[in-house]
């Protein structure tokens, strides 16, 4: 069971990373969401094997055979946060699409401008150099 979860975490991170490296914004968003799910699953895994009762109280069980409830609380918090940010990102991607009619991430405009700029320093710099 834990092995299945661990594999699921790996698959989610893997596909998430692959999608994150794409140029299309929607894929990036989906990739981030998948990685978020992977992280939440990982949090659950940190709480011990699944299927165990979360609280002490059943005396018949051996010691230590409890699931830790704290990771579930953390995962819940993290799910809400991831949900919020991914929703915002989605809105932003939609906005970007509405503005430019394009879902692709462009090259860094500023970088290309500087790369094309002449090597000779511009006038502003020349003024203060003797």
């Amino acid at each position: 069971m834990t092995l299945a979860l661990a594999v699921a975490v790996g698959v989610l991170y893997g596909t998430g990373t692959y999608l994150l490296l794409q140029r299309t914004l929607t894929r990036v968003v989906i990739g981030l969401a998948m990685m978020g799910h992977g992280a939440n699953l990982l949090l659950l895994l940190a709480g011990g094997s699944p299927g165990l009762p979360p609280l002490i109280g059943d005396a018949t069980r051996e010691r230590g055979a409890l699931a830790d409830p704290l990771p579930q609380a953390m995962a819940l918090t993290a799910i809400v946060i991831t949900f919020g940010t991914v929703a915002f990102l989605l809105a932003l991607a939609y906005r970007s699409w509405a503005l430019t009619d394009d879902d692709e991430v462009e090259d860094d405009v500023e970088d290309r401008r500087i790369a094309r700029a002449p090597v000779v320093p511009d006038v502003v710099i020349e003024q203060e150099e003797p």
């Binding site: 992280a39 990982l42 940190a46 990771p71």
Partner: peptide, 9 residues
Amino acid sequence: LTAVALLYG
């Protein structure tokens, strides 16, 4: 979050 989960684990 990943780091937190691993650290907690």
